[in-house]
Nucleic acid binder design. Structure first.
Lengths: 154, 154
DNA sequence: CTAATATCAGGACAACTGATATAT
DNA sequence: CATATATCAGTTTTCCTGATATTA
């Protein structure tokens, strides 16, 4: 049914997947840079933001839990956590039931910070989505994100 | 309280924007890692792939042109180009009309390589989109990508 | 002289791998 | 002993900033 090859060099052929791939690749690169740009101005890095929102949503977790959830190595997540602990956003307490584990949870300061909306105001991406996309467009984005998850979740 | 999952982080902002932002941030991180993963031994990096596809689509360009198009600094693009020149994929010739410029174009080898479909077969992302998303879903993705461009272009 | 192009040099960041100590 | 957690140390990648030479 599909004897067509994925031939990027033939513009006359229906290669919407290839075009989508290129657009997506470009978008990921730009988004990555944009997020990092914003991180310098007092914001948190994307990884840090993601961790805080995850802890807020799902409750306390260990470094390994978070690494699995974000799809990165425990060592890499360890560095993210260290930065958050240093910033006083996250507190680690030993698990009484398992001496290997350290349970990470949001600090009181961090909760206040979030409740005051400072997290949201400093969240460039959320701010921009809110400002630039209307409700209907946000729905399209939500649908597309679900599709994109299929691509990266193996 | 569980109903206020997202409200904690954004009491004065549309909660769906915050959730979308988190999902998108997570996706970008995972996609970035996925793309790098796939760039194995003889494969190209995402930036390199993007440059080749752009040259193929829009014709010869200078380092600065490409940097502008991809949203990065000329120095950064210079490194990408150097790698592609080293790999024999891209050739630079001086602009006779402007001594500052070097016009970059695809090498004969690179064109053959693309026409043989090897570029596409090595394009994990295009392959995966084709395999995992049907036509309708690809349209949703295309629409969403247009929206996302609005967020990063500015 | 000012602006654009390209490149050299050095740095920051976020991920990686490998090795190790400790607890289950 | 085998497995899981966490961390230390070093590396890689990809982008960045700053400075400089050259040409328009």
């Amino acid at each position: 049914m599909d004897d067509k090859r994925y031939d990027l060099a033939a513009p006359d052929m229906d290669s919407s997947a290839a075009r989508l791939a290129q657009d997506l690749r470009l978008l990921v690169g730009r988004m990555k840079r944009r997020l990092r740009e914003q991180a310098g101005a007092g914001d948190l890095t994307p990884s840090q933001t993601s961790v805080l929102l995850r802890l807020e949503k799902h409750g306390p977790a260990t470094t390994s839990d978070l690494a699995r959830a974000e799809g990165m190595r425990p060592q890499s997540m360890g560095a993210v956590i260290s930065a958050l602990e240093e910033a006083g956003m996250v507190i680690g307490t030993p698990d009484p039931a398992d001496g290997r584990r350290t349970i990470l949870s949001l600090s009181e300061n961090c909760r206040n910070w979030m409740q005051e909306g400072r997290a949201a105001r400093q969240d460039w991406l959320a701010r921009t989505i809110h400002a630039r996309l209307d409700t209907e467009e946000q729905e399209v984005l939500a649908t597309a994100l679900a599709l994109l998850k299929r691509l990266v979740d193996d």
